[in-house]
Structure formats: C-alpha cells, structure tokens
Amino acid sequence: MPLQTGPCMAWPTELCCETEGKEPEEIERWTLIASQILWALSGRRIGPCPVVVRPCKRACLESSPVSFQAGIGTGPWIPYIGSDGLWRNASVCGCKSDCSCGELCEVWLETPVYDVTEVNIDGQVLPATAYRVDAPGRLVRTDGECWPDCQDMSAAPGQPNTFSVTYRWGLPVDEAAVAAVSELTCHLMKGCGSGSCGCKATQRGATRFIRQGVEMDFGDPTLIYKEGRTGLPLVDLWLSVVNPYRLTSPSRVYSPDFKRPRVTTWP
C-alpha cells in the first residue's frame, strides 16, 4: 500500500472547455475528483506529496545472537543462521554493499523518492551535502558519519534522540498528466452538472435495438471501466503509457536488510 491514500492536492489543469457560469469552487471540486480518479488508475504513484518518516538503520542480521571475536578482522562478528538454513558470520560494524569495498551507512525510504527536503537528527538539520539518494530509495550518509542505530519513537520529530526524514514521495505531474486531468475534468463537469445526483455522461444506454426486422447490438459502455479506462482518448492514451499493465499500486520488493520506516498517520 502506498504512503498516500490519494493525491495530496488537485493536479494543475489547462481546461479547454467552457467554464463560464461555473463557480470556482465547483471547478476546483471536479478537478480534485478527476485527480483522485487518475491517481488511482495510474497505479497510485503520481505526486509528489510531502511525507515525514522515522527511518530504521539497515540491519546486517536477521536475529541478535551472542557476539564473539573472530580470529582476524576489524571487530566483532556474530554467527547466525540465514533464511536458507546456512550458518554465516555478520559484522556488527555495518553492512558492505555488493558493489562497495567498505561500509555504506544507509536507510531505506518508500519509493519513488522525488527529493529530500530535510534530514533532522536530534533537532539538528543536516546539510544536503551530508547525504544522497541511491535508487531504489536508499538514503546514504556521505559525510563520514552514520545514521543513528536507534531513536526515541515516543518523542516528536526534532526532539533529542530522534531521527526523521522529510521528503516528497511520488512521480511528478508532467505535461501529459496535466492534459489528461484537464480532459477528464471537462468531461465530468459536462456530464455531472451542479445539483445533479448522477453523471448523465456515464449512464448505461441501450445495448440492443430491434425495429421493423432490423436488429442492432451495442456494446455496454460501462465495461470499459472494468479495464481501468475511461473512454476518453487523451486520458486513456496517457494511462496506457504510465500504467500499461493496469497495476493498482506500485510494485515493491521487500528485503530483510532494510527495515521499513515508521510513518505517523495521526494526529
């Protein structure tokens, strides 16, 4: 499930339909509805939306057995049994990447990461030069220090002994998305007028017509919605580009090495 349950705001539009006589509040409402529909149909990835997370440092171990000193090495090593049933030794000093000779101090963020606006440790904001983001969603410390091993989760972000990351999650609303949401907004405003209890443009029509020996069959216009499409050329073209396989949510891979960050949802 994504971090957001809907778009954090209405997407920008360039309406090509007649809006005379429409109240700004009504236009804004239908723009938000169109944005919510396209956000869901596009795989719940379009943003970007700000989010504050409390990350957990990457772990080398699947458990915490008793440590012991190896014969040679740079520090303590811990034996453990992996998920495949084999014994291995893990260092408590950090984790080595498969493409790095040394330790990488990194935490995992939900993707897609648009940008990082703030990293706060113990109430101090780190400069942007102290970290970088590696795909997919690895926040890597680059100033020679390392992320905290633990933090006080009962304290608010910015307090002593806390670690929080503020970043924007999601893909940008590009020009194609603006064109798509503009077309859908106009469609909804035309068929769902103010005060109406239903959308006239989407009502089910006749599927079979027989008269004077002539029989005609029409497709059910509502079946296209089951395929995650709207019947609007520009909207469906955009959906076929950004979500060709009709995914309902972003695909993700889970790793025992990266702990999921904690996100406060209320208050």
Rank of each mutant, 00 (worst) to 15 (best):
T230G: 10
E110P: 13
P2Y: 04
C49G: 08
V242Y: 03
C150Y: 10
R204K: 12
T202N: 07
T111K: 00
S194P: 07
F163E: 07
W87C: 02
I78D: 03
Y131G: 02
I72A: 13
G213V: 03
S164L: 01
I72Q: 14
D220P: 08
C146L: 05
M1S: 10
N89Q: 07
K22C: 09
E215G: 02
W108K: 15
S194K: 07
G94L: 04
G43H: 04
Q151W: 11
T31A: 12
T5F: 14
A130G: 04
D174T: 02
P127G: 05
V181P: 00
N161R: 06
L109A: 00
D134G: 01
G198T: 14
A206Y: 05
L234F: 01
C197I: 09
V113M: 09
C192R: 00
G213Y: 00
E183L: 00
T207I: 11
P136I: 06
E14F: 07
K22M: 12
T162A: 06
T13D: 09
R45I: 08
L234T: 14
L86Y: 02
N120V: 15
V53K: 00
S164N: 04
V263R: 01
A155I: 06
T265S: 12
A156I: 03
A135F: 11
Q212R: 13
C99T: 15
P24E: 01
R204G: 09
E28A: 15
A130P: 00
T230M: 11
A206R: 13
T162I: 02
M189E: 02
D152K: 02
Y80I: 05
P136A: 08
E25H: 07
S42L: 10
P7E: 08
V133M: 03
A135P: 10
E23Y: 04
S42M: 01
E183D: 13
V125M: 09
C95N: 07
G219Y: 00
D122I: 05
W87D: 03
L32E: 12
V214R: 14
P79N: 10
